[in-house]
Every structure is written in C-alpha cells, then in structure tokens.
C-alpha cells in the first residue's frame, strides 16, 4: 500500500516537474525579452522602447498589411482545404497518404524556392501577378497548407464523418446543410487551431514578403532588429501579444456564431 502510494507520488511529482520545465522553457525567454525591452532608458525600467515602436508609422502599417494577408490566407486556405479534406475522407480515403506526403513538402522545400518559382511563373504575361497581393496570399496558402490540412484531417478523423453524413442524408439533408450544420460545427476546435497556426505563420513570415517586395510585418521586424537594440525586443513582445489577441478575438467571435448550440456542450 505504502509502496504504491509513494510510487504514485513519484509519478505525480514527475509530471509536475515536466510541466514546470516546459513552462520555464516557454516563458523564460519571453520574460527575458520582456525585461530587456523595458531597459530602453538607462538605469530604469520604462516603456520607452514601446513608445518608439508605436511612434513609427511603419509598425502599424506593416502589421495591418500582414493581418490583412493572414485573413485572406485563412479564408483562401480553409476554402480550398476544408472541402478537399472532407471529399478525401468521404470518397477517396486511399489518397490520404498521398496528400499527407504533399503536406510535408512545404516543410522540406525552403520558402525561397517557392518564392523564386512563383516569380518565374507569374512575372510575365499571361500571368503577370507579381504585383498583386493575390500571389503573396497564394504563397502563404502553400506555406500554411500543412497546418490547415493536418488540423482539419485530425478533426475529421475523430468524428466518423461518413456515418454522420449518411445519417444527415437519410434525413433529407443536402450538402449545404451537412457542411454548415454538422461538419463545420463539429470541426470548430480543429478549425481554430488551423487558423491560429496560419496567423502565427503568416504574421511573421519573412522570405516570401521580402522577395515579392511587400511591406509586411516580417520584413519590418527584421529591418528594425538590424538597426536597433531594445525596440526589436518590444516588437517581439508586441507581436506575440497581438497574435494571441487576434486568436482570442476569433475564439470569441466563433463562439458568438455557433456557441448557442455547440460550445455550451463542452462545458456541461
């Protein structure tokens, strides 16, 4: 009895140990960056670095631009990938390994190759798109494809899509009802994590934005980091906070839409 108890204690303290270690690993650098960002004025802690950041109009402009791009990327990405994933799950489950392989490609192929490819293909007529932000969004969709697909795929795998679809069909539901009343509400968590990852990736993305010459937040951060000391730290903290803020907004908004019939189910 005693032995079992102590074993349990050891196991429990181990899990606490790892939890704390994980939190430290995550938050210590953040804390250090934060403290460093407060040292803009010699000898005292102050928000002077933050004031500088906000005073620079490029900060808000580039952030706004990147935010717009991430919204477009999320919309385009979800619009393309969600129906595809559903279709694959329902009709061609055998193709899953193939698609999974494709989802790995953006990790293996560096963005710089993607950027050069895009420029080569779309710089001259009939596809002169290099000046259109659509090309940037298209590139971002490719980069975020793994995150979106994997999240959606995991969400679909746990819900027995085929049976729910058939149940809905036997009740007379068409594809619209099935998608918007059944599949998407049940995918909510998966979609949120897909959106989160896409946002986080696109907001700080550097290579594509630089090579396609867009005034995005990623290049701005790199530029500031090259010339200044405390401001980049402040910027890192700000972008971290803003990304989380954006995610929280999405979460609240999505709860407002489907919460009345769904999210309360999680709480009970």
């Amino acid at each position: 009895m005693d032995k079992m108890n102590s074993e349990k204690m050891i196991r429990k303290s181990f899990s606490w140990f790892w939890l704390i270690a994980g939190l430290l690993y995550f938050f210590l650098p953040l804390l250090a960056t934060f403290l460093f960002s407060l040292k803009g004025k010699k000898g005292v802690l102050s928000f002077v670095a933050y004031q500088h950041v906000f005073a620079d109009p490029n900060f808000l402009n580039t952030f706004r631009f990147s935010l717009q791009m991430s919204v477009c990327t999320v919309l385009a990405g979800l619009g393309i990938i969600v129906p595809t994933a559903i279709w694959i799950h329902l009709r061609v489950p055998k193709a899953k390994p193939v698609i999974e392989f494709f989802t790995l490609l953006p990790f293996v192929i560096p963005p710089i190759i993607l950027a050069f490819g895009l420029i080569r293909c779309y710089a001259k007529p009939p596809f002169a798109l290099t000046t259109s932000p659509a090309l940037l969004v298209a590139g971002y969709v490719v980069i975020s494809f793994p995150y979106i697909y994997r999240a959606v795929d995991a969400g679909l795998s746990v819900m027995d899509l085929q049976m729910l679809t058939e149940a809905a069909q036997s009740l007379g539901a068409g594809w619209g009802s099935i998608l918007f009343r059944i599949i998407l509400p049940n995918l909510r968590t998966a979609l949120l994590s897909a959106i989160f990852l896409t946002f986080a990736t696109v907001i700080g993305e550097l290579t594509l934005a630089v090579l396609l010459a867009w005034p995005a937040f990623g290049p701005y951060m790199a530029f500031v980091g090259r010339d200044l000391a405390y401001e980049p730290a402040a910027l890192a903290i700000l972008s971290f906070a803003m990304t989380w803020g954006a995610i929280m907004l999405i979460q609240i908004a999505s709860r407002g839409v489907s919460g009345s019939r769904f999210s309360s189910g999680d709480i009970h």
Partner: peptide, 19 residues
C-alpha cells in the same frame, strides 16, 4: 439519391450529431 428517398435510418453506433 439517399436524401430524397425518404427512408429513416438507424445505425449501430447511433450517429447522433455531437454538436
């Protein structure tokens, strides 16, 4: 198509909509 056959279906694993 199934949606227009007007047949009720009951499945082994219930297939209730979880949401």
């Amino acid at each position: 198509p199934p949606a227009r056959r007007k047949l009720g279906m009951v499945f082994q694993n219930y297939a209730l909509f979880p949401n």
